[in-house]
């Protein structure tokens, strides 16, 4: 890095090298792209979630929502799963 580069970096108040910013932005945008490019992705995730939770809880399968959301430079999987009640059988399965 030449002296000029160092000086321009100091005076332009850049924190991270721009390639790190590029890489981070790409990582975030591609998670979204890949998920939305295949609508089956979220659907099959939803179906598998239902399969697992069904053993433990009585849930409203129709109202279940699964989405990927952007939150401050990170991606979160947000699932909204209305619970109708606990399953006695499920409790036994967990404790045994």
């Amino acid at each position: 890095m030449s002296l000029l580069d160092v000086l321009s970096r100091i005076f332009s108040r850049e924190s991270a090298p721009s390639k790190d910013i590029a890489r981070e932005r790409l990582r975030l945008v591609l998670v979204h792209d890949r998920a939305s490019a295949s609508p089956e992705f979220l659907n099959s995730l939803k179906e598998d979630l239902i399969k697992v939770i069904r053993d433990y809880l009585d849930i409203d399968e129709e109202a279940l929502q699964v989405n990927l959301e952007n939150e401050d430079n990170s991606i979160a999987l947000i699932a909204n799963i209305p619970v109708r009640g606990f399953k006695r059988k499920g409790n036994e399965a967990v404790s045994s």
Binding site: P17, S18, K19, A22, R23, R27, L30
Partner: peptide, 16 residues
């Protein structure tokens, strides 16, 4: 540009 950190390098792109 790669050397001064202003362009993604080969490994960055291959990783992604």
């Amino acid at each position: 540009m790669v050397k001064r950190g202003d362009m993604m390098d080969i490994s960055d792109i291959i990783d992604i």
